[in-house]
Computed example of a mutant assay.
Amino acid sequence: MTEPGTGESADVESRVGGSGAGVLWRLVRTSHVVRRQFTAVFDAHGITGPQFGVLSAVADGDDLSSADLARALGVRPQTMTGMVDALTDAAYLSRTATGRGRRAVITLTDRGSELLARARADLGSFDSATTTGLRPEDTAVLGELLDRLERAMEHGSGDP
């Protein structure tokens, strides 16, 4: 069986959408390849991409609630509650009530900090010129273009 992204499978994948496929379709195809590889990195640490996002947001934020995290990561509050519960059960996060009737503040445990440090190190190695095939200057330009594309798609404005 051929691995995804290699051999005959890669040839078929490259033809999906035809030779005139637009840039957004090519971005979708590329995102699938990247997601598979990111998933392998996260799997090695026993977490998912969204869980990594939660751990990172908690590590980088101040006194975040579950609702704050849901807004920051663009998910429904109910979905975030499930993710926070799972990460709390695994002892990567802790919740501290700030008082009666007040929100619970979510913080990273030592175990969560250690996991996040290891995952970030692996992602740093993964997100390199060796993996991407891009020179540092290409990476900077691509990053700027992706940021611009995201803003335009979010706000419905395609003006450059």
Rank of each mutant, 00 (worst) to 15 (best):
Leu149Met: 12
Ala119Met: 10
Leu69Ile: 05
Arg135Phe: 05
Arg102Thr: 04
Val33Phe: 12
Glu8Ser: 06
Asp11Arg: 14
Arg15Glu: 12
Arg102Asp: 10
Arg26Gly: 12
Thr96Gly: 13
Ser56Tyr: 05
Gly17Ala: 07
Asp159Thr: 13
Leu87Thr: 04
Val28Ser: 06
Thr130Pro: 00
Asp159Leu: 15
Gly101Cys: 01
Ser113Lys: 11
Ala140Leu: 07
Glu8Phe: 14
Ile47Cys: 00
Glu13Cys: 04
Ser94Asp: 15
Arg71Lys: 14
Gly46Asp: 04
Ala104Gln: 09
Arg29Leu: 15
His45Ser: 03
Asp127Val: 09
Val75Glu: 03
Gly22Val: 08
His32Asp: 10
Leu87Met: 03
Val141Gln: 10
Ala44Thr: 13
Leu24Val: 13
Ala57Cys: 10
Asp11Thr: 09
Met80Arg: 03
Gly112Leu: 04
Pro160Ser: 12
Thr81Asn: 03
Leu87Asp: 01
Gly74Lys: 08
Asp60Tyr: 02
Ala152Cys: 12
Thr107Ile: 07
Thr139Leu: 07
Ser31Trp: 14
Gln78Ala: 15
Ser66Asp: 06
Gly7Leu: 07
Val28His: 14
Ala40Leu: 08
Ala117Asn: 10
Tyr92Ser: 00
Gly158Pro: 05
Ser14Cys: 15
Asp11Gln: 12
Thr107Met: 01
Leu27Cys: 09
Val84Ala: 08
Ala10His: 06
Val23Ser: 14
Leu55Asp: 01
Gly133Ser: 00
Asp63His: 09
Arg71Cys: 02
Gly7Tyr: 01
Val105Pro: 08
Asp60Gly: 04
Ser9Ala: 14
Phe126Lys: 08
Val58Cys: 08
His45Tyr: 09
Gly112Lys: 02
Met1His: 10
Arg102Val: 04
Glu114Asn: 13
Arg148Ile: 07
Gly124Lys: 06
